[in-house]
């Protein structure tokens, strides 16, 4: 003989079982697939120079008294802008440098990076004179990749027999 309370408990358990079964069969909505942001998307666009330091890597390694010179206020570097162009698929195409500052690296050509996504190593921008990107003319390290910060730092390194002896640190902000 079942009591009224036993009937009520049984009813509740049945409802719970039904509800659980119904909800477990519902399809979960995770949104549509979005490809990860590439380095090209972060680097592309026009950048205004906000700082330029020249570092004597030899003096730095040998404890020289003067290791760095600020060149930002010299030779119209304040007017220097760099533009990295991409195509519709965000693949790198051409680049150009505007302004009358001395051409520390070739002021126009084509660009490519060492990898589209993070590798754990310092990202590199390779500069080419030809669209096929077979004639490399310069190379820039991306020492601060835009992302967490809107700014970007590039480093141009001069080497001799594989040993850096001079570098330039370009600090850049995006042109709105």
């Amino acid at each position: 003989m079942k009591t009224k309370s036993q009937h009520a408990l049984f009813g509740c358990l049945m409802f719970l079982a039904l509800a659980t079964t119904t909800s477990s069969c519902e399809k979960k909505d995770d949104g549509s697939y979005v490809a990860p942001i590439t380095r090209y998307e972060k680097v592309q666009g026009q950048w205004q120079l906000t700082g330029l330091n020249q570092t004597d890597e030899l003096a730095k390694s040998t404890g020289g008294s003067l290791t760095q010179v600020n060149l930002y206020g010299k030779f119209n570097f304040k007017d220097m802008k760099i533009t990295f162009n991409v195509d519709a698929e965000n693949n790198p195409t051409s680049y150009s440098v505007s302004g009358n500052a001395p051409e520390l690296f070739t002021k126009e050509g084509f660009w490519q990076m060492d990898a589209a996504f993070t590798t754990g190593k310092t990202a590199k921008i390779f500069l080419y004179s030809d669209e096929a990107k077979t004639q490399k003319i310069d190379e820039l390290e991306v020492t601060t990749m835009p992302g967490a910060t809107t700014n970007m730092d590039l480093r141009l390194v001069r080497t001799s027999a594989g040993t850096p002896f001079l570098s330039y640190q370009f600090s850049l902000k995006p042109v709105e």
Partner: peptide, 10 residues
Amino acid sequence: FPQKITKKDI
């Protein structure tokens, strides 16, 4: 400055 330089430098 610097101690070593190329023709593309300041």
